[in-house]
Amino acid sequence: MSETTEYAETASPDKGDAAPAASGRRKSSPTSSWRSRLYRWDIKASPYVFVAPFFLFFGAFGLFPLLYTGWASLHRLELTNLDDSTWLGLENYTNLLQSDYFWNALGNTFTIGVISTVPQLAIALGIAHLLNYKLRGSTLWRVAMLAPYATSVASASLVFTLLFAWDGGMVNWIIGSVGFDPVNWRESSWGSQFAVSSIVIWRWTGYNALIYLAAMQAVPHDLYESASLDGASRWQQFRHVTIPMLRPTILFTVVVSTIGATQLFGEPLLFGGTAGSKGGADHQFQTLGLYLYDQGWINGHLGRASAVAWLMLVILLLIAAVNLLIARRLRKAQ
């Protein structure tokens, strides 16, 4: 708080040499004490005012669903009868923790998350770096990055089902021409996870590249200038200038991608085709998001689905806590 008061004090004396427009505003000295009070209030209150819209809207439309699912997770609640709920306490949770399907989904979510998120962010960073060069037709390159994100689910699901078809699919045709046996992409365990991850990578890499690109725009070029004067290669510039400058944005994409991977739902659903919510005959690519959808939407067990959602939240919090601990350790070690 001391910082802000300091501002207020230094700001109150009238500066004649300030920008003309600004000085015009503050010439009215009779009201200056009222103004400075207003000013002090502005500085104290404005942060809250700035974050208020977000919390207001969240309170109006996000809070009720959040509390409702929390309440539902403690009850037996069916989609067919929302007015009739039976108190279960933690039974939904204990049932889930004993359910093979839940642990299977958790494992799948983790493996698919890793094999999709890591390459996705790495490629995105590289692509953003390339896009940051002086390019011919740069608008075109940039907007093309977002094409997968804009492609409708209907098109994407048709294309990928045909690509990964067991019999006559393009991917099997290619690996067949190199002499390998065709893979049953949907019903094999690693094959299906690989296929789902490739859809995720296809869909989100350009998206992340654009986010990185925006951040790169704010890296002052004179850093590159002096680096290249020092004889740094492009790769070194990328490593020693771009990456450190982008750290907050990289952190952002890691957090958002982790959350996204935990909730992964659309891509495996579209890959699964009819009855896609099962995630394969052996649930080999059923993620937590899909399991939740299957429980709540297809089977109508809202209470249990809500418990899945809250467990997902707990898992994310655990990941965050572990991250914090590691970061603190590392800092101490240094």
């Binding site: 048709l158 089902t161 045909l162 078809a165 067991w166 019999d167 006559g168 699919g169 085709g273 009819t274």
Partner: peptide, 17 residues
Amino acid sequence: SAKLKQFDPTWDQGFAN
């Protein structure tokens, strides 16, 4: 069986071929 899944695009191809 041809090991197709009904109402998949590949099922359509099964008819066509």
